[in-house]
């Protein structure tokens, strides 16, 4: 297999390739569903009085940053075919490099302005880097890193999620 990257992948490095407008608004019911599921009683997510005093109102837990930009399974407008798959850029890279398998190896979140009920987030996916071809116990493939920058309706950055992947083909 050639070590040279396909031209389309090279062209993606360092720029925003996929933009997702969230199909759902941030709202308290979603926040409470999540906090209930991980037993998080932080009053910033539940108690308006405390949240108002500490951070100006109820906020969304940081771990939900990526939740709002995942597509609905179905909508009346587009049926069950979302415009983009979740983490579309990862799949574009994986397909362009012709790797049947891909796993997340590392995740990093940097948080900015709090996400609040009523916000609608926009996710901008960019490709930071792609490694040389390497072989490990999983198989032969490449690592790549994708940054997803989440912005609210005012353009303020709510956070950046950096995901490192290993796409590979098992040894035959």
């Amino acid at each position: 297999m050639s070590d040279e990257l396909p031209a389309e992948v090279l062209a993606w490095i360092g720029r925003v390739v996929v933009v997702d407008e969230a199909e759902v608004l941030v709202e308290r019911g979603l926040i409470e569903n999540f906090c209930s599921s991980v037993e998080d009683g932080n009053p910033l997510y539940w108690d308006e009085t405390v949240a108002n005093e500490v951070c100006g109102g109820i906020i969304s837990p940081p771990a939900m940053l990526s939740a709002y930009n995942r597509p609905h399974p179905w909508t009346p407008k587009r049926g069950d075919k979302p415009l983009n798959r979740p983490l579309e850029l990862h799949f574009k890279v994986k397909d362009a490099l012709d790797y049947p398998r891909g796993i997340v190896t590392e995740l990093c979140f940097e948080f900015g302005v709090p996400v609040r009920p009523g916000d609608r987030l926009r996710a901008e996916q960019s490709l930071r880097e792609v490694s040389e071809i390497k072989t490990n116990k999983l198989g032969t493939g490449r690592n790549w890193t994708i940054d997803v920058t989440y912005k609210n309706q005012s353009g303020a950055v709510a956070g950046v999620e950096t995901l490192s992947f290993f796409g590979y083909r098992r040894a035959s």
């Binding site: 906090c35 991980v38 932080n42 837990p61 940081p62 771990a63 590392e106 990093c108 979140f109 948080f111």
Partner: peptide, 23 residues
């Protein structure tokens, strides 16, 4: 990430603001 955040802010209280998390 949600369980980790809960674990830390249960201990540190709501004034603690998670700024960065990698795993």
């Amino acid at each position: 990430a949600g369980w980790i955040s809960k674990y830390l802010t249960d201990w540190a209280g709501p004034l603690a603001r998670v700024q960065r998390m990698s795993f």
